[in-house]
């Protein structure tokens, strides 16, 4: 089982580190990271393995959301099935 974590907002020091740290705390293995900075807008998409999560999925999502809110970023944690079902035949 994998989830997609997206983080969008103003670029600043330590975004990737904080989100990746939270994933490690929850035992979510980061599989892939794509990130881009356009002028000062930061966009990161992270694919994480959630099959060995230490806590329920919604608490993991709430934790990531908490980091986003603390830094004024917009974050989303969504199960990958939603993207697979909407964009693949």
């Amino acid at each position: 089982m994998r989830a997609v974590v997206t983080v969008i907002g103003k670029d600043m020091v330590g975004i990737l580190s904080k989100v990746a740290g939270a994933c490690a705390d929850c035992n979510a293995n980061v599989i892939e990271v794509t990130q881009s900075v356009l002028q000062d807008l930061f966009a990161m998409i992270m694919l994480v393995d959630i099959s060995e999560l230490r806590l329920p999925f919604d608490q993991f999502a709430a934790k990531i959301d908490g980091i986003g809110q603390g830094m004024g970023l917009s974050t989303h944690v969504m199960h990958e099935d939603i993207f697979n079902s909407m964009h693949r035949i």
């Binding site: 997206t6 694919l47 917009s74 990958e80 939603i82 993207f83 909407m86 964009h87």
Partner: peptide, 18 residues
Amino acid sequence: MPVLDTKDILETIQMIQH
């Protein structure tokens, strides 16, 4: 399993958010 496309991910989030 193919890797998800960035464009598709952002499109879904745009659909839900906006």
